[in-house]
C-alpha cells in the first residue's frame, strides 16, 4: 500500500515537473517559431504542437504573448482577411532575437551538463 502511495507521489511529482518545464520553455519555443515566420495565435498553438509535441492551452499562450509584446520582445500587427475577421500576427523583435540567442546558449549549457 505504502509503495503504491510512493509511486503515485512520484508520478505526480514528475508530471508537475514536466508541466513546469514546458511552461518555462514556452517562451523559447515561441521565439524559435517566430524566428522563421510571423504567426497568429491559433497557428502558433498548432506549430508548437507539431514542432515540440506540446499542446499548449490558449489560457497559457495568450497571456504570455501579451507579456512578451509589452516587454518589446515581440511585435504584432493586425492583418485584414477576406473573411472580414482579421488576424493578429506576431513577429520577433530585434530584442527578442537577442533574448532567443541568450536563451539558446543557456539551454544548450544546461542540456550539455545533463548529458555529461
Amino acid at each position: 500500500m505504502y509503495i503504491v502511495y510512493l509511486c503515485i507521489m512520484k508520478t505526480e511529482f514528475i508530471e508537475n515537473w514536466h508541466s513546469q518545464l514546458r511552461k518555462g520553455l514556452l517562451p523559447l519555443f515561441v521565439f524559435m517559431i517566430l524566428e522563421n515566420k510571423k504567426c497568429y495565435g491559433y497557428e502558433l498553438i498548432q506549430d508548437i504542437k507539431v514542432g515540440f509535441d506540446i499542446d499548449v492551452g490558449e489560457g497559457t499562450l495568450y497571456p504570455l504573448l501579451v507579456r512578451l509584446a509589452k516587454e518589446g520582445l515581440l511585435t504584432h500587427q493586425w492583418e485584414e482577411q477576406p473573411s472580414g475577421i482579421p488576424r493578429k500576427y506576431y513577429s520577433i523583435s530585434i530584442e527578442g532575437k537577442s533574448a532567443l540567442a541568450a536563451m539558446k546558449t543557456y539551454a544548450g549549457l544546461i542540456f550539455k551538463k545533463i548529458n555529461e
Partner: peptide
C-alpha cells in the same frame, strides 16, 4: 478581436466536423 479571430481560425481548421461540437471544443479550450 483576438478571441474572435481565434474562434474563427479554429472553426475554419475544423470545418469538416460538426459546427456546434467544434464551437464547444474551442470555447472549452479557451
Amino acid at each position: 478581436l483576438e478571441i474572435n479571430s481565434h474562434i474563427y481560425e479554429y472553426l475554419s481548421a475544423n470545418s469538416t466536423k460538426d459546427q456546434m461540437e467544434t464551437l464547444l471544443n474551442v470555447l472549452e479550450r479557451l
